[in-house]
Amino acid sequence: MGSLGGFRIGSGYVPWICGVAVMAAAAFFLFGLVGFRSIIAFAVLFVVPPLMFLGKTSLDVEEKIFFSLFIGLGLFSLVVFAVNQLLPSFRLSAVAAFVLVVLVAFLVVPKILQRRQQKLQ
């Protein structure tokens, strides 16, 4: 599977992605496209951002996914809220917050870890 800045979408994630797809399909069956969008939005908003950080840890996939979900519920929207104090639009802030999380997870954190490793060596 693919790799992005040290975050590997390994085969361990495949069953979970399939699981989410089945859940979204169930929501589609009950509520149509809005139901499908809502479940995907739930996963993208609350699981994916923390997962970008936890993906780099030694935790196993299950732990990464579950911890991400419960962290994301409280913290991702806080980042959006904080960004919205600087940007005029909430919608734009949501996009900016997501981009910010990606940048920090894939550019800043790896550099910090690299420096730390060099220091230890």
């Binding site: 809502s38 908003l45 959006v80 919608r91």
Partner: peptide, 10 residues
């Protein structure tokens, strides 16, 4: 904010 995000993405 979660409610609002769901409105926007949903």
């Amino acid at each position: 904010a979660n409610y609002a995000l769901m409105q926007v993405l949903g």
